[in-house]
Design a protein around this nucleic acid. Structure first.
Lengths: 192, 192
DNA sequence: TTCATTTATTGAACTTGTTCAATGTTTTGA
DNA sequence: TCAAAACATTGAACAAGTTCAATAAATGAA
């Protein structure tokens, strides 16, 4: 199932068949059952992953035991803890499958190999990192400037598909509010 | 004053003298007086900049007229609206000098020239974008999980230098709280 | 130096969101 | 298919943060 991966790459840059093959060969497929973890806090994140099936959440548990979701990753999304992966430091994050899932994983060593051997891969990840950074920048602005009601409405509009697959608990953890409060927001919206 | 820029680049990657020169020559120096703008909402951000002197704030004005600071950039920092610059779309952001400042600016065209002619520049910006992304990811987690008091204390610890140069108004706009509330936090902390 | 402007502080009333506990609903797995 | 677990809703009391208005302090430009 590297077909999705190839499409994803070609969406960002153009590569020859040979280059694509040699890059895609660096990935290993892994199945992750629902509720199982790809990464836990304290571990060093050794992989960068591309989701070919299922859904993951990338989250943090704070000092009071509350979970905050950094992002969700469904089919065609990349997942890693870029902080831990890049700096080889213990992760603050958990990556857990919310459904039975499949990912293609590449190790740090193999990724660096690709950087050295296929110059365009450098461009690929520059462009991809830019895009994720832009998304996060937009989310930061929204979190600073919008009320929880509006962020919830935006979420549904922006990710209608994720909205269907996620529980309100997960969505609340992404929006940064308690699930009880989300429940009240939902009632307010429904009554309109 | 490209000395700072050269140091900054060599901090991320290694380049030959020739490569450095040819890259640095793509930058134009610009002076920006206090309170003047490098970018305003609605404009397309045509540059990526490196601050050699002074201090900037990159901020957004929301629908209610409130300002949120995305980040500050002092000497040795890069500034741009990566969203507008990359996608050539109108910016949601303002970039304003908070002190009399100087920046080295590179245009999109010249940056792309550099990508094509000096392969390592691709790596430079991949690595730099990764780093800013990591910082933003950490800030996102903090904003979701920490109380305003703690975020303020963290800010002072992390940026003691910025703390000295900024008004409480600016810091409040970065923390995402009203300046009145910041004032109350300061009193509470001082009384301990 | 001075006066106008910007910045900082404070209190009171208010809004947004949390916490806790109870209850109902849905999902899941043996 | 049935019991246990996970999820969702609700209300009441509470905490965090805002708003508004008034005043004081600091800064800056002529």
């Amino acid at each position: 199932m590297t077909e999705l991966l190839i499409q994803n790459i070609l969406n960002h840059i153009t590569l020859s068949k040979k280059e694509i093959d040699s890059f895609c060969n660096l990935f290993d497929q892994k199945e992750v059952q629902k509720k199982h973890f790809l990464l836990r806090e304290g571990q060093i994140c050794k992989f960068e992953g591309f989701v070919t099936k299922g859904l993951f959440r990338v989250y943090h548990i704070d000092n009071n035991g509350f979970e905050q979701v950094l992002y969700f990753a469904q089919e065609n999304w990349w997942i890693t803890d870029i902080d831990s992966f890049t700096n080889e430091t213990p992760s603050q994050l958990y990556i857990q499958a919310l459904e039975d899932s499949e990912v293609l994983l590449i190790s740090k060593k193999d990724k660096e190999l690709a950087y050295d051997n296929i110059p365009k891969i450098e461009k690929l990840f520059r462009v991809m990192t830019q895009k994720t950074h832009i998304s996060l920048q937009r989310r930061m602005i929204d979190n600073l400037s919008k009320t929880a009601d509006q962020r919830y409405i935006d979420f549904i509009e922006k990710y209608p598909n994720l909205f269907q697959r996620l529980t309100n608990l997960q969505i609340a953890a992404y929006l940064g509010i308690s699930h009880e409060f989300l429940s009240k927001i939902r009632r307010k919206i429904a009554s309109k």
